[in-house]
């Protein structure tokens, strides 16, 4: 994928506000490929009623309350797929996509590396919310026994919507 065009003030906005919205960050073909890849994984989980790991891909079911560890509200109801990149090349390719990595580098993330990929689902009428929170565990991690202070400003995440 070619690097998405960033607004001229993108880095300034990200650094001052802590977040940045980018229209059409992923092109249409990439989105279609991710949707197909997600559907392929979903099709292997149509009978799941409990959280399960299959070949390194984690399937978390949607419970009635939204809490983890509870049974699915119905068989195959998914809330999250963790590390879809281990089961579908489209996600593995996205982790190392030159366009994505180039954009992140332009935004100040030196030598970006993807650590986690996942697909989050909100089923119609059933998808539960997620309370406001911080992903603090990503910046409190330790590096060889020392606090990861040097990397504090270097953690970013980006969600995007490949739904149809």
């Amino acid at each position: 994928m070619t690097a998405p065009t960033l607004p001229p003030d993108a880095r300034t906005t990200l650094e001052s506000e802590g977040w940045l919205f980018i229209r059409q960050f992923l092109d249409g073909d990439t989105v279609k490929g991710l949707v197909r890849a997600s559907e392929a994984l979903e099709s292997s989980a149509t009978t799941l009623v409990r959280d399960t790991v299959m070949l390194g891909v984690g399937f978390e079911v949607q419970s009635a309350t939204g809490r983890r560890g509870e049974p699915a509200v119905m068989p195959g109801a998914l809330r999250k797929i963790s590390f879809p990149s281990k089961g579908q090349p489209a996600f593995a390719n996205l982790r190392r996509d030159r366009g994505v990595l180039s954009a992140l580098a332009q935004l100040g993330l030196d030598a970006p590396k993807c650590l986690v990929d996942q697909v989050n689902f909100k089923l119609p009428r059933l998808g539960t919310g997620f309370p406001f929170h911080q992903d603090a565990h990503f910046v409190i991690g330790k590096t060889r026994g020392r606090p990861a202070a040097r990397t504090r400003a270097d953690w970013w995440s980006f969600p995007t919507i490949p739904s149809r």
């Binding site: 590096t143 060889r144 020392r146 990861a148 270097d154 995440s157 969600p159 739904s163």
Partner: peptide, 19 residues
């Protein structure tokens, strides 16, 4: 009445490797 999918990815910058 429509399903929603969201891809979430976490990136870190260069620097000390995490254990």
């Amino acid at each position: 009445d429509r399903p929603r999918r969201l891809v979430t990815m976490w990136f870190r910058g260069g620097g000390p490797a995490l254990i």
